[in-house]
């Protein structure tokens, strides 16, 4: 290998290392911080109750959408709950974790009565989706 090609190879390795370093720096410096606000204890309780009040209707709709399929019903309920939680978090300008934590706290605060559930049906994905 001539000196020119050796230099070219070294330059190549240098560029390769620089690209790698650029990827590392960019990945480690990018930030998407969550909203800093938190729910007050009172609001947390309100949010938990609001979700609990919706649960019976979400579950009724899930039973109609997936009759006789318990996992799919719970999954459909989960989709409705998640949408509500995200919307509620946006509305109140708080992280989604705050809303989900409020739901969790409400579930722990008193015995859960049917049709509400503190359980989830074992995972049984449907055999086809097409």
């Amino acid at each position: 290998m001539g000196a020119t090609w050796r230099r070219a190879a070294h330059l190549g390795w240098l560029v390769f290392a620089l690209c790698g370093a650029a990827a590392v720096v960019r990945a480690s410096t990018a930030r998407l911080p969550p909203p800093p606000q938190r729910l007050s204890p009172t609001l947390r309780e309100q949010v938990g109750h609001a979700a609990a009040n919706q649960e019976a209707e979400w579950r009724r709709k899930a039973r109609q959408s997936f009759p006789g399929d318990h996992w799919s019903q719970d999954d459909d309920f989960g989709a409705a709950e998640r949408k509500w939680a995200v919307d509620e978090a946006h509305r109140r300008g708080v992280p989604v974790t705050e809303v989900l934590e409020a739901i969790d706290a409400e579930l722990h605060s008193r015995p859960v009565q049917p049709p509400r559930k503190a359980t989830a049906s074992p995972c049984k994905p449907r055999p086809f989706y097409d």
């Binding site: 719970d74 999954d75 989960g78 989709a79 709950e81 998640r82 939680a85 995200v86 989604v96 974790t97 989900l100 934590e101 969790d104 579930l107 559930k117 503190a118 359980t119 989830a120 074992p122 995972c123 049984k124 994905p125």
Partner: peptide, 25 residues
């Protein structure tokens, strides 16, 4: 109880999600 559609949030609360949405039973 958790929520598989929002599972990433539960880990941040150090909570397990019983609700599960895997591709196998």
């Amino acid at each position: 109880r958790g929520n598989r559609w929002a599972q990433g949030y539960f880990l941040a609360l150090n909570r397990g999600s019983i609700a599960c949405g895997e591709a196998w039973p």
